[in-house]
């Protein structure tokens, strides 16, 4: 049985800054990292490999340099890393991304049974949380989002029980395998690669699948297969820090000002 971790190489958004003069993105020297949520998806895949003997595969769609992320996955212990890269895949939104990824998973299904596809709950550059459900729907897998604990996996009965972390509550859900699971950070603590694994991964092969392998209609992938497009990008209004009132001499007034700000901003749940 194969367990797949879908990962994405993203620019480290915490390092993205807006040039105050030109009002454009300063991207110089911003490194690419594995989407932090995906590192937990990867870790869970590896844990299932360790505990159940499943075959762990890391999958990523992206430009050729996304190979770095897949190489890191190899260093962490996946059995195979596959990069889905093709010019026609470029500029994809979530709908055409899930199309490419599910086509790749389908191709893996020809080789062996797929048990679980893990995705991070969202990416830090897009924050959409849509590719996971997209994959589940396209493949007809059970869809389990926001999972923070795997309760049990019954390979005989082909079921999985997980805990989902929702607003103010948890749900224990049982579903049929194969399943697509998106994970939250609380699920596990990602491992760190050992040096021998790193050295080995530097030479290991990252498979490259282009549309020649996946044979998708070029109008259903990349920019052409994307219903949404970005029409404009602009800098947000950045709220500067504000010191409220004179807290030293009139703390009550300062507190009232604060509550007013929170109410204005509709930030309170009360």
């Amino acid at each position: 049985m194969i367990v797949v971790a879908c990962i994405k190489q993203v620019p480290d958004t915490t390092q993205v800054q807006i040039d105050p003069v030109t009002n454009t993105l300063v991207r110089e020297g911003i490194p690419f990292i594995i989407n932090p949520y995906d590192t937990h998806a990867l870790e869970e895949t590896l844990r299932l490999k360790d505990s159940h003997g499943f075959k762990a595969v890391a999958l990523s769609m992206g430009p050729p340099n996304a190979e770095a992320a897949l190489r890191k996955a190899l260093a962490l212990g996946v059995d195979r890393s596959i990069l889905l890269s093709d010019r026609v895949f470029g500029g994809a939104d979530t709908l055409s991304t899930s199309n490419v990824i599910s086509a790749a998973i389908r191709r893996l299904m020809d080789e062996d049974e797929i048990g679980i596809v893990f995705c991070g709950k969202q990416t830090i550059d897009g924050d959409t949380a849509q590719v996971g459900p997209g994959i589940a729907v396209r493949l007809g897998f059970s869809q389990l989002t926001l999972v923070d604990r795997i309760e049990r996996i019954d390979t005989g009965a082909r079921t999985i029980t997980v805990r989902r972390k929702l607003e103010g509550r948890y749900e224990i859900v049982e579903a049929r395998l194969p399943a697509m699971i998106t994970v939250v950070r609380e699920l596990n603590r990602p491992r760190y690669p050992t040096v021998p694994m790193r050295l080995a991964s530097a030479k290991a092969e990252v498979e490259r699948w282009s549309n020649e392998e996946l044979k998708l209609d070029v109008n259903s992938v990349g920019l052409k297969g994307s219903p949404t497009w970005v029409s404009r990008i602009f800098s947000p209004q950045r709220a500067q820090g504000e010191i409220l009132g004179d807290g030293m001499n009139d703390p009550v007034a300062a507190a009232l000002m604060l509550v007013d700000r929170l109410v204005e901003g509709d930030l309170l749940a009360v």
């Binding site: 491992r191 760190y192 690669p193 050992t194 040096v195 021998p196």
Partner: peptide, 8 residues
């Protein structure tokens, strides 16, 4: 511990 076992 760090390099061979990633245990820290």
């Amino acid at each position: 511990l760090v390099e061979m076992e990633a245990r820290f």
